[in-house]
Deep mutational scan, measured.
Amino acid sequence: MSGIALSRLAQERKAWRKDHPFGFVAVPTKNPDGTMNLMNWECAIPGKKGTPWEGGLFKLRMLFKDDYPSSPPKCKFEPPLFHPNVYPSGTVCLSILEEDKDWRPAITIKQILLGIQELLNEPNIQDPAQAEAYTIYCQNRVEYEKRVRAQAKKFAPS
Rank of each mutant, 00 (worst) to 15 (best):
P157G: 10
A152N: 09
G34V: 05
T29F: 15
P88T: 14
C93G: 03
T35K: 01
K49T: 08
E118D: 13
P69H: 03
K154C: 00
E132C: 09
L57A: 05
R61F: 11
F77L: 06
N124H: 09
Q126L: 11
S71E: 15
A156M: 09
P46G: 07
K49V: 15
A152G: 07
G55S: 10
L81D: 02
L38G: 03
T91G: 15
F58V: 09
K65P: 11
E42F: 10
A15Y: 15
C138G: 08
K18L: 04
R104D: 06
Y134G: 05
S70K: 07
F64R: 01
K48L: 13
P128D: 04
R61Y: 09
N121R: 11
S2G: 15
C93W: 00
L38H: 01
C43W: 06
L9Q: 03
C138L: 07
N121K: 10
D102E: 10
E132P: 07
S95T: 09
Y144P: 04
S70V: 09
Y137H: 04
D19A: 12
S158Q: 12
P128I: 05
W53P: 04
P84M: 14
D33C: 05
E99I: 02
R8I: 00
F64S: 00
N124E: 03
G50C: 09
L81W: 02
F82S: 01
E42D: 12
Q111Y: 15
A26C: 08
R141L: 10
P73D: 00
Q11N: 09
M39E: 14
P52C: 10
P105N: 01
R104N: 02
S71L: 06
G55W: 09
I4K: 06
P123C: 04
A15L: 12
V148P: 05
P80L: 08
S70R: 09
R8Q: 06
P88E: 15
D100S: 15
I136E: 12
T135H: 04
N31L: 14
Y87W: 06
Q151T: 05
L60W: 04
S95F: 01
G55I: 08
E132H: 09
K65D: 05
L60K: 05
R13P: 02
C43T: 15
S95R: 01
W53F: 06
I107M: 12
Y137I: 06
P157Q: 13
K65Q: 14
K146G: 12
N140S: 10
K30V: 10
L120W: 06
E145F: 09
N40E: 15
A150K: 13
R61A: 10
A5T: 09
E42W: 08
P46W: 02
V25Y: 08
V92Q: 01
L60F: 15
V148I: 15
T29W: 03
Y137D: 02
I109L: 11
L114K: 11
D33R: 01
R8T: 08
P123T: 00
P28N: 06
S95W: 07
R61E: 10
S158D: 03
G34A: 07
G23Y: 09
S89R: 05
A15E: 12
C75K: 00
Q130M: 01
C75Q: 01
A10F: 11
I109K: 00
F155W: 01
T29L: 14
W53S: 00
P52A: 14
Q130L: 12
D127E: 11
T135M: 10
D19M: 08
V25M: 10
P46D: 05
I107E: 11
W103D: 01
V142L: 12
S95M: 01
F24A: 02
P157V: 04
Y87C: 02
D19H: 07
I125N: 08
G115W: 00
T91L: 14
I125F: 10
D127H: 03
A131M: 06
L97F: 07
A131Y: 11
N85D: 01
S158F: 09
K49A: 13
V92H: 01
L63N: 11
F64N: 06
H83V: 03
V27D: 01
Y134C: 07
G23D: 01
K48I: 07
S95Y: 06
G34Y: 05
Q11P: 11
Y144G: 04
S89V: 06
A44Q: 01
A131Q: 14
E122N: 13
M36K: 07
K101Q: 09
Y68G: 02
P123R: 02
L97I: 15
K59F: 13
